[in-house]
Design a protein around this nucleic acid. Structure first.
Lengths: 193, 193, 193, 193
DNA sequence: GAGTAACCGAGACGGTACGTCCCGTCTTAAA
DNA sequence: TTTAAGACGGGACGTACCGTCTCGGTTACTC
């Protein structure tokens, strides 16, 4: 019986999230409104407000579960190739609708709403960074990566240029771009002695 | 007479921009409204709409002239030190009110409004990237930087981690963070042979 | 030019009042909503709120001008007949849709909202009472009415039973009822000596 | 055992009515809500809806038993004095919080809800009218009242002016006002021959 | 004494309307 | 012509209650 209640609540929650995603794709995040989600989902506005404190929080919840899991890092033994592979996957995700524009909007919202930023980090960015750190640690032990490399920085260094291109330059990120970034990062900026 | 008119127009434009900044600091970009700017500035709404097509455009115009000019790159002959110096300045700017939070909001808005993103790149990001490219080209010729370094990528690589920390991790960027990033970037990730 | 503005404002005001009356007849005062008036009139809600502070005030304004003017008192020289004639007219007005039920609702609202009560008295009840007082004063001078009759009370005494029947007993008020009331009031309750 | 259930049900019913009165005094009838009564009484909304079909019905039930019984008519042998005494009592009741404003609100609600009006008449107005009729009948037999006086009208005539003053003019009804009304009613409007 | 039915509190739910805010457009009168 | 002022239609906000509806957890009555 407790199951039933949970199920009903879950049903509603899922319905709302799905509707949110639909509308976000049709209208974009900016024109998305809780009013419209409620109407399309056939749900009272309060039922949404009961679950999420803001449009941003709802949108994050709706968007993130969808594609968040795909970015595991392979382990072929070649660290540079493995990271490249994973980064290709990330770029493919970001570069294409529906996820790309929606994720961009989410990052935009994170600039206005710290709670969105926090949740984003906890649920999406953090885990990715952790996987990269772990994979690099392994590579470091295998001598494939400079022993003095600061692993806590690695994710920022590797994905920073990508996000820069995505959010600020707002140019399409290609595999070629990733290749060039990786070349530069692995080689270093200093001339070889 | 034409002069006077231009002056009046300029006066009004400046007044509106200044009021915009004031209100943005008090309320944040999200709660900023053209209505409120008009009221506070003692100006008709039309007078604002005649000059800017959107809140984002007005805000960009109001924010950018303010502190944009400070980020020149010194040339002491030591490329790493020079870039570091300039990046410290950038970090100091971003890290402190009022510019930091407002600039963050601007970048957030740029995710929703391509015209804001375009103007931002043209007026703020682009010139900075260009200066970094020029300074690195010089350094490359002086043999301080790897000859194969892709200069078009350099700004993204150098500032990407910073923006990642600022926009996504949303942690305060310290000089120490910059130091660690620069160490890693100049040394490269590959173990020295 | 001032004319134009006034005309436009008047147009809107009249349109809203007329729509209010329409909806009130269809739905009754209780189910009447400012939202629905705005929608049907093709007008923003604010345009209504700018003019009236409450549903009651709007309704009063919409209802009262409509039929308020009809209740003049004839002067045939026979005070009892004249008052009777005028009271018949009042009863006919109250007894029939659309005015009757709407006026009843207005009186109901006046119990909850003192400003409605005040406006009602000033614009509808007061003038009627004044006319009755004036007519009675004339009759008093002509010796048709007891010289000691308190004229300030007359309207309450004459129309009180009518309103009692209308608002409290909530039975249909007939001409016969008026006749019986008038007989009693003119004769007095005391036995003739 | 059946007693116990009845007692509990009664307890709840009384608790709800009392809470309703409390809240009505604090907020006024208009702002009174079943939701708030349920919350304050620590009772499920259903428990209220099970007992009363509407806010008006609940309010009537809560208000009327409280003070309804006090308006008996004395019998000193002087009909005018006796009615006056009873009317004074009525006026005192109406004129003072908490009963006055609440009763006014009830009458207001009766204009919107015929079932409230019906219950009001059956339980409050009707009995009063009946007592007045009976007392007058007695007086009529004793020759204190005109034999042709229509007793069915008497309550409307006697209390109509009072209700007019209370509901429509919305002025405080004083004993003096009652005196003047009674003088006029007993003497009649016609000049004595 | 264990069922069982009724009632209860709690509050979720779809829905309607509230009164407010701001959008971007439009009109007016003054300078 | 430009401006300040602000009315306007429109849309969404977040809130309050409506009346209905589960949901578990007592009672109190029946077998």
């Amino acid at each position: 019986m407790a199951e039933k209640r949970t199920d009903r609540a879950l049903d509603r929650t899922e319905l709302i999230k799905q509707t949110t995603l639909e509308l976000a794709q049709e209208l974009g995040f900016t024109k998305l409104s809780i009013e419209a989600v409620a109407a399309r989902a056939g749900v009272g506005k309060h039922t949404i407000y009961r679950r999420w404190p803001s449009k941003g929080a709802l949108f994050l919840d709706a968007l993130l579960p969808a594609d968040a899991q795909a970015l595991d890092i392979p382990n072929t033994g070649d660290i540079e190739a493995d990271l490249r592979t994973q980064t290709y996957a990330a770029v493919d995700l970001l570069g294409r609708p529906p996820f790309g524009p929606l994720y961009q909007a989410l990052l935009g919202e994170a600039q206005h709403d710290p709670s969105v930023a926090a949740a984003l980090n906890e649920r999406f960015i953090g885990p990715q960074a952790q996987r990269v750190r772990a994979r690099l640690k392994l590579a470091q032990r295998q001598g494939q990566v400079a022993p003095e490399l600061d692993l806590d920085l690695a994710f920022a260094i590797l994905s920073g240029p990508l996000y820069f291109q995505f959010l600020i330059a707002q140019e399409i990120v290609t595999h070629g771009y990733i290749d060039r970034v990786f070349s530069a990062l692995f080689a270093g900026m200093r001339p070889s002695p």
